[in-house]
Amino acid sequence: MFDTIRRYAGRLRTATPARAEGAPERRAHNLFEAAAVYVAARAEDDQDRIEEAAAWVSPEALSFGVSELACRAVVALARERDESPDEVARALLGLPAA
């Protein structure tokens, strides 16, 4: 499953734009890096970093990356807490148990 996601994510990477003469070289950011920085910046309420990370990839790619990060975080927390992913997701959102 993760191989499929990695292949899909590889196609969504942004290309490095052509740089002007004398301008510093910029590297391309992948969607998972953008999602990680974006979510961390949102958690810290850092608007500058939010906007910077959002500009690294398309909105669709960022959405996919944030969704994948959320899934992985819920699975990791569920394993750590020895609970189901459903219980963890509901608890994180403040929802009553199903």
Rank of each mutant, 00 (worst) to 15 (best):
Met1Leu: 09
Met1Cys: 12
Asp3Tyr: 07
Asp3Cys: 12
Ile5Pro: 01
Ile5Leu: 15
Arg6Gln: 15
Tyr8Gly: 02
Tyr8Cys: 00
Tyr8Leu: 13
Tyr8Ile: 13
Arg11Ser: 02
Arg11Lys: 04
Leu12Ile: 08
Leu12Thr: 04
Arg13Trp: 00
Arg13Ile: 06
Thr14His: 11
Ala15Pro: 01
Thr16Trp: 01
Thr16Asn: 08
Ala20Thr: 03
Glu21Ser: 15
Glu21His: 13
Gly22Gln: 04
Gly22Cys: 08
Gly22His: 02
Ala23Cys: 04
Ala23Pro: 08
Pro24Lys: 14
Arg27Leu: 09
Ala28Cys: 07
His29Pro: 04
His29Arg: 15
Asn30Ser: 07
Asn30Trp: 05
Asn30Pro: 02
Leu31Phe: 04
Leu31Asp: 04
Leu31His: 01
Leu31Val: 10
Phe32Ile: 00
Phe32Trp: 08
Glu33His: 00
Glu33Ile: 03
Glu33Arg: 06
Ala35Arg: 02
Ala35His: 08
Ala36His: 08
Ala36Glu: 06
Ala36Asp: 12
Ala36Thr: 14
Ala36Gln: 10
Val37Pro: 08
Tyr38Leu: 00
Tyr38Met: 03
Tyr38Gln: 02
Tyr38Arg: 02
Val39Ala: 12
Ala40Pro: 00
Ala40Met: 05
Ala40Trp: 02
Arg42Pro: 09
Glu44Asp: 12
Glu44Asn: 12
Asp46Tyr: 03
Asp46Ala: 11
Gln47His: 10
Gln47Asp: 15
Asp48Ala: 15
Asp48Glu: 15
Arg49Pro: 00
Arg49Asp: 11
Ile50Met: 14
Glu51Ala: 12
Glu51Lys: 09
Glu52Tyr: 14
Ala53Leu: 09
Ala55Gln: 09
Trp56Cys: 05
Val57Tyr: 01
Ser58Ala: 03
Glu60Arg: 13
Glu60Trp: 06
Glu60Gln: 10
Ala61Trp: 03
Ala61Phe: 06
Leu62Phe: 05
Phe64Ser: 01
Phe64Tyr: 10
Phe64His: 03
Gly65Pro: 06
Val66His: 06
Val66Tyr: 09
Glu68Asp: 09
Leu69Val: 02
Leu69Thr: 00
Ala70Asp: 05
Ala70Ser: 02
Arg72Asn: 12
Arg72Ile: 01
Ala73Trp: 07
Ala73Gly: 04
Val74Trp: 02
Val74Gly: 02
Val75Pro: 00
Ala76Met: 13
Ala78His: 06
Arg81Glu: 06
Asp82Arg: 07
Asp82Gly: 03
Asp82Trp: 05
Asp82Asn: 14
Glu83Ser: 02
Glu83Ile: 00
Pro85Ser: 07
Pro85Ala: 08
Asp86Lys: 09
Glu87Cys: 04
Glu87Ala: 11
Val88Met: 00
Arg90Gln: 10
Ala91Met: 08
Ala91Arg: 14
Ala91Asn: 07
Leu92Asp: 06
Leu93Arg: 15
Leu93His: 05
Leu93Glu: 07
Leu93Asn: 12
Leu95Gly: 01
Pro96Glu: 13
Ala97His: 11
